[in-house]
């Protein structure tokens, strides 16, 4: 699906990604791990730019519009599917059919906030799920996520990850949780200082081998 050879990326004159080779196959689930500042988010947004046509991005910054309701924030995932007039109509007066779709999606994400509630009044975990719902509502074949579950408890994170995987052919995700990476992903790649230092099937790895890729474990060791 995507073949990258000796990729280098810079951010404000600092090299963030250095001479990186990577190939991603359709149908794969790929976890990206690495300590802060390793270049994960930069790589992820590069991947999104490449796969834009069939990929939905759930970024760390979420991009929620505080003044709009849960419904509108989720519906924004479908802006490209509908005509401008229809979108504006939905902004002023949400259509029954779309509301049902969004409501169903929210229920699947265990998001129990009323659809008309402005997202400014939601909790951190609820906001994260609204952002996730928006990405899912795009209905693309590839999901690209940047720590999409960081504000959720582990059980909830596992449930939602299963849902994301069920709905997408390919899943690429930056993770901060080695257990989740090991148990739910086919393949794990590790970044350190912008270089690719690990690229193995998850079945060949264990928690100790991954330890150096997570800030928390680094601090305690």
């Amino acid at each position: 699906m995507l073949q990258i050879e000796s990729l280098s990326l810079s951010y404000r004159d600092t090299r963030v990604i250095d001479d990186l080779d990577l190939s991603i196959k359709r149908g794969e689930s790929l976890a990206i791990v690495g300590p802060s500042g390793a270049g994960k988010s930069t790589l992820l947004s590069y991947l999104y730019q490449q796969l834009k046509q069939d990929a939905a991005l759930c970024s760390q910054s979420q991009g929620l519009v505080d003044g709009l309701s849960v419904f509108h924030n989720v519906y924004m995932g479908a802006l490209a599917r509908h005509s401008a007039v229809y979108n504006l109509l939905n902004l002023a007066w949400p259509m029954a059919g779309r509301r049902q779709e969004v409501e169903l999606l929210c229920r699947e994400l265990y998001l129990d906030a009323p659809l008309h509630k402005p997202v400014s009044s939601l909790s951190g975990g609820q906001r994260q799920r609204v952002a996730l719902a928006r990405a899912l509502y795009q209905e693309k074949t590839t999901f690209i996520g940047d720590e999409s579950f960081s504000a959720l408890d582990p059980v909830m994170a596992q449930r939602l990850l299963s849902l994301v995987k069920a709905r997408h052919e390919t899943v690429i995700m930056v993770l901060h949780d080695s257990e989740l990476a090991l148990s739910h992903f086919d393949r794990i790649i590790g970044l350190s200082d912008g270089k690719l230092v690990l690229d193995k099937p998850a079945s060949l790895l264990d928690g100790e081998q991954l330890a150096c890729f997570f800030d928390t474990q680094m601090a305690t060791s």
């Binding site: 519009v65 007039v85 979108n87 902004l91």
Partner: peptide
């Protein structure tokens, strides 16, 4: 429509 959803409410 994008303006209406993303910029105007802000």
């Amino acid at each position: 429509d994008h303006y209406g959803f993303e910029v105007l409410p802000r």
